[in-house]
Design a protein around this nucleic acid. Sequence first.
DNA 1: ACTCAGGCGCAGA
DNA 2: TCTGCGCCTGAG
Length: 300
Amino acid sequence: MIIKAPIDLELTQISGQTSQPPWICKDNVFTDVVCVDGEYSIFSVRQSDDFLDFTYTGNATEKAALENVKKIYDLDFDLPRFYDYLDGHDELREMSKFCNGLRLFQAKDPFECIISSICSANNSIKRWTRSISDMKMKWGRNFNDYYTFPDIETLQKIYLDDEDELSKCGCVNDNNLKCCGVGYRAEYMRKASEIFSLEIDLSEIPKMSYDEAFETVLKVPGVGPKVADCILLYGFGFKEAFPSDVWIKRIVSHLYFGGKDIKVEKVREFGMEEFGDYAGYVQLYMFHYARKSGLMEKLK
DNA sequence: ACTCAGGCGCAGA
DNA sequence: TCTGCGCCTGAG
């Protein structure tokens, strides 16, 4: 079925955002397995002119499947209206040209989003993507060779490294987190799994205010301000989040503060104050604008 | 072979 | 409260 919302699907997929790796692409069709009301469906999406062509297999009702795909690709977001907003500001005007059709690629699985966001910290997009894909292949459930992300209970039991695996199971069979290339983040990931199993109920987070949700996820080891904002934005749709890292710092500094060196924490406050409910989208557009326009090279 | 990028936790100021 | 170091891995 065709969903009439303008989107650049490929751009949205490869934007390197921290909710999930890109879906598997074959002949311009992007496919992955999605949990709908407790059951697994294979979702396929394809660019059809400006719109999205969506098909799925599985027992999900059409209504539920549609709701899910709309959420994942943020299809209810009014992109033209956002472009009017960008056009109304000197500093932002150029961005829509470079990122036309780019939407938030939202998590299909909040737990996956949390763990992959932790994995993304102090990491490269390439290495982060490989690690998460490895984890899915090793410990996720296989549906037609599309793999789910391992659930909370599964991940809690995964060994940390070779040493941990050897002492607990007597042999080493690449069945541990560090062999996925996550490095010292392995401990954070396992601790986080424990916390979401025992202390924090994932389903409570969407009911919270932004501030409350921010403070809640900050308690998780490996989650600082940047990762917390990524989790809230890509995992739970808090669009007022403005994830601020060194790149966003450089870009904001260049566009708004005459290149002056400012603290990342100040950049976050500035972004939230200045852009309000558009903060998350402005952050997304800033990053890709900088990438594509050559600004990023200039700011290095 | 070596250096560096990248956000977070922690020790020490 | 704030500052600066070390963490792990792969790319250059």
